[in-house]
Write a protein that binds this DNA or RNA. Sequence first.
RNA 1: GCGGGUAUAGUUUAGUGGCAGAAUGUAUCCUUCCCAAGGAUGAGAUGCGGGUCCGAUUCCCGCUACCCGCACCA
Length: 461
Amino acid sequence: MSEVTLEDIASLAKRRGFLYQGSEIYGGLAGTYDWGPLGVQLKRNITNLWWKTFVEDRDDVFGLDTAILMNQKVWQTSGHVSGFNDPLFECGNCRNRFRADHLVETWVEKHAKEVKAADLPKYEQSPATLNVYKNTLNMTCPTCGKQELSDVKQFNMMFKTHVGAVEDETSVSYLRPETAQGMFVNFKNVVDSFYPDLPFGLAQIGKAFRNEIAPRDFIFRLRELEQMEIEFFVHPENWRESFDIWLERQRQFLMNLGLPESKIHQVEIGPEDRAHYSKHSVDTEFDFPFGQKELYGCAYRTDYDLSKHQEASGKNLEYRPKDGSAPFIPHVIEPTFGVDRTVLAVIATAYTVDTVNGEDRIVLKLPEHIAPVKMCISPLLKNKPELVATAREIYATLKKKHGAVMWDDNGNIGKRYRRQDEIGTPKCVVIDFQTLEDGTVTVRDRDTTEQHRATIDELLG
RNA sequence: GCGGGUAUAGUUUAGUGGCAGAAUGUAUCCUUCCCAAGGAUGAGAUGCGGGUCCGAUUCCCGCUACCCGCACCA
């Protein structure tokens, strides 16, 4: 069996109604995809499993669904505005980055004579002016000394927008780049409503937006993405224990989706590569067709966010232990799960090419509990009214029970099997002449292609 | 964002400065007692915008999207 490529997966996804290029009839929009009927069902099965596992089945995690648009002060406080809106020079040699305005200003102070001699425009913090200063003054990298500083790069990765019809500085807001802040700003609300014991968590599933420089690899890097995130609040002394537990839960969740353990790798992230809020990070990576890449992240956000918000908002965000001991700001363990990446990993894992009767067959070996269609009902022959009528009845019965049941009487039975194989339907149920005699049906298994007879009651169970 | 490549039907693809062809899928009908059988009929394509030309899907330019490197990825 040859390696499955991302293009094979994208082609199948489109052909069978899982995913389409966003805004396709207008030439597309980079980094956006639209979920088709089967794709949204598969995705929803996965997010539902997550919600059940981490919210419904637990009594220490509370669900939320917070607004995508938030007061701009949230993003100033969280560090997302200042950390990512600044003009930067990047050194082509050592790859370090520097605040362009700061670098130019200190350079001007230190090299007053050259500056006076040079023909420079009036100083201002525009990228064009900063570039002119850098080039005219032959500025070098403060770290390695090479004269390889790039022109100004703006790493403002948040989508900026305006709330209300008037576009001025006070109306600025951003599409959230992470769902986390919605949970931090509601920490006090949930504590006041439910007075939970520590440790406890907040969870939500929702869209986040990142103005990626280069969206890439089908739905792996999107500008509009979906996250399943938990902010788990702990006593600072216990962070490590919780961290390791959540890491293991992330691995277990992937294995519940049928991913092989051998393709899951948990990798500690060095201080250089960590997010600005994180004191310890471990990525859960997966062997995608295009390489080993990040699927999930787990970060120890300390009390960074709650402390910042307490300071900026003036609201007390401390946790008050019920034993009367001193209030404190809890620390946070944040396991975050990318929805789109999970779907991609699941499809990549399930995508199989094998041989049936000497012919290649594409089959999505999805675990039954997340398959978008659970079973397909067919009359053996569609020109035999008695078969069709009985099949229709059985279809109605099974659909009422299971919901995700499909009817197919197109072509011959082999074609229907192949079509269902491609969308990962675990069982095909065929109503044949024996059904008319004893009520049993043929059930064909997706993975083995083997058939056996079963009663309707067995299928209802 | 930089460099390179690609763009023809839902999918996979052929071809051409002068009517765009196939396979497969798909629709309707016939046929069919179990793994893409067969027959008939039908719908369906040159990414978008400009230029050259009598005429552009083909040549040129721009844009967009996708793919491959690099960089980026809170």
